[in-house]
Amino acid sequence: MSTITNSIFTPETAARFDHLVTLYPVKRSALVPMLLYAQDEVGYVSDAVVAEIAQRLDLLELDVRNVLSYYSMLRTKPAGRYNVQVCTNISCMLRGGYEILDHCKHKLGIGHKEVTADGVFSLEEVECIGACCWAPAMQVNYDFHDNLTTVKVDEIIETYRAGKGKDVK
């Protein structure tokens, strides 16, 4: 049972949030997981998400925004259906990460933090995603793709464009 009337979340997520706040000695500890789940469901952290989470955790909206803005994985604008995150941190950089990034920019016709006109793809340059052993690497939504070459990137993008990838949102 949701403690919030007219929750903007699906009943499952709302129920999950109800449970989440009971897990920690201090309610606000649920803030970061809640933001992540909310982003997965809504696609980004909208003003409405901020408002409801603040209400759930007895926080001011300002508190939620303070935390939210700290984490680069949390976004306040919608991303594409497939959010392409290319790593250019040191291992990837040494193994051609920037080439991959440039290739994506060219291929998708968008830059860092931009979304294609059809809303299918968005692109981000990110720091290390923990796949250094197989650099260069990128992440599309929650899927990892490594040992990249420009040819491989083309194939990956086409797979998603054909709707075959996992659509997490």
Binding site: L60, E61, L62, N66, S69, Y70
Partner: peptide
């Protein structure tokens, strides 16, 4: 409040 991080950190009003 304080928003963002590192050298982009900024004081933000409510």
């Amino acid at each position: 409040g304080i928003q963002n991080r590192g050298s982009s950190a900024v004081i933000a009003p409510n």
